[in-house]
């Protein structure tokens, strides 16, 4: 069965890839962009991974003054740790607390803090996530395995191109005294998008 009917997302990705390559070729032919520029952007995105965002989160967990700077001036704060963001998009950080849980989506396309976290996961770009996260966030979070209590506010952040959003997840309990490197290991990509909490420490 699987052989005769490949999963829809594979077929969808194939069509999209063909379309994107055709657009890319046209833009290069017309001199709007160069092939080197495309390679450079892909290369720069791949330099970053969620481990980079995790270092920022861990610093914010151990240093209240840093956390405050991160929330008010994210570009400056990540710059303190050596991360230079691309110039065409700002970064903003939203903080999860006991009272509010943020989750990020880009309903218009797939805007993501690529210059800090690397490329977005495929599901972030899917029509299903983009359409549903904004209208039924609690159901979507439940499917990711995250049940948000009724008393906790869910705030959906609909991100667009000029400002990319990073979620500062809650510091897990039982992590007092842990160093920044060990804390960073608890910070997952999904927790920085807001579809998960940070991992609990190993007992």
């Amino acid at each position: 069965m699987a052989h005769e009917h490949p999963p829809l997302h594979h077929a969808e990705r194939g069509k999209r890839a063909t379309r994107i390559l055709a657009i890319q070729r046209l833009l290069i032919d017309k001199g709007v962009i160069t092939a080197d520029e495309v390679d450079d952007i892909i290369e720069r995105a791949r330099e970053r991974t969620p481990a980079d965002g995790a270092k920022v989160v861990a610093r914010a967990w151990v240093d209240d003054a840093y956390r405050a700077r991160l929330l008010s001036d994210a570009r400056g704060a990540v710059g303190e740790l050596g991360y230079r963001l691309s110039h065409d998009a700002e970064l903003a950080v939203v903080e999860n607390t006991a009272d509010v849980h943020h989750v990020v989506v880009c309903t218009l396309c797939s805007c993501y803090p690529t210059s800090l976290l690397g490329p977005p996961p495929d599901w972030y770009k899917s029509f299903a996530y983009r359409q549903r996260a904004v209208v039924e966030p609690r159901a979507v979070l439940r499917e990711f395995g995250l049940e948000v209590a009724d008393g906790v506010r869910v705030t959906v952040v609909d991100s667009t191109a000029d400002v990319r959003y990073l979620v500062l997840p809650r510091r897990p309990s039982g992590t007092q005294g842990m160093g920044e490197d060990a804390l960073a290991d608890l910070v997952t990509r999904d927790s920085m998008i807001g579809v998960a909490q940070a991992r609990p420490p190993k007992p």
């Binding site: 904004v134 209208v135 039924e136 609690r138 009724d150 008393g151 869910v154 000029d162």
Partner: peptide, 17 residues
Amino acid sequence: VWGTGYRGADADLLLAD
């Protein structure tokens, strides 16, 4: 935003730029 069709808490918010 969604009216009575929204299934969530009354306090839930949407942020958009």
